[in-house]
Amino acid sequence: MKNTILQVERLQTEFTNDKKKVKVLHGVNFHIKKGEVLGLVGESGCGKSLTSLSIMRLFKGTTARISDGEILFQKNKEEEIDLTNIPEEEMRMLRGKQIAMIFQEPMTSLNPVMKIGEQLTEPICLHLGYGKKKARTHAINMLENVGIPRADEVINEYPHQLSGGMRQRVMIAMAMSCNPQLLIADEPTTALDVTIQAQILDLMRQLQQDQNMSMLLITHDLGVVAEMCDRVVVMYAGKVIEEASVLDLFESPKHPYTKGLIASVPKIGNLKEKLSSIKGRVPTPENMPEGCKFAPRCEEAMPICFQKEPATKAFKGNRHCSCWLYDDEMRDVSV
């Protein structure tokens, strides 16, 4: 497993609501290889963001808690650590240094009353041990790397003086400043206009390739997935239901949910009188159906789907899918 930077195993995260425990992640399994861009897709409410917050353990101020599972992170060549049970102090030193994160809304994730420069140099001083002056030079370099014009002036400005696209560039500069091994990007371009989205995606791809960094890209936009990712994990109702390389996933989706998602995207140059859609909605964590959680919305559901949950099966080409449709097609091993 030397080639894997992050391995998430049976991850379960729950909230406590009025003393009642509500499980939101029901055993999430996936891994990210070194230098790979892994896409995490699904509708809102299926647990994508909670998965990323669980990896970073960003639970402060909520009742969320990891109740089971492992998150194995390859810290360096020799050492592999389990992020679910290291002390908070060690986790703090990891955040921003080895694992960095960018969020959807760049305005709410930057401090509005701190100058860009102060916010940028904070992690640099903390993690790299630079002095103020050196950190400032490094920060200006980083801003230039992400394509911000007049970087030496911007560093003295406040976030509200920048446009949405520029703020997201600052967030990226901040995330990249300590040269992380893994970047988690949670809907990084959703709040941006298409022309700005194209700029930011281009920048992220370039930085990722230059540094051979691993990336977990969380998005609901299948177009972004097709352009950015090497491999894709599809989540539904707190579980991974399909995993495949980006080419396989779009060419021959296996799970009916994946098929439905791909079919419901309107494609430019491919007009249809009627778009297909998935009926119903993602179940809430309090009202999870029995059996396969997608069964009530599934066009191909069989009686067994409403009774028992399907196991995850491995297929040729390093693919995984959990669906009863493929029960007799089982190739290698049941994972």
Partner: peptide, 10 residues
């Protein structure tokens, strides 16, 4: 038009 990401990896 060219900025719209198209869901086709090929």
């Amino acid at each position: 038009l060219s900025s719209v990401p198209i869901p086709d990896p090929k």
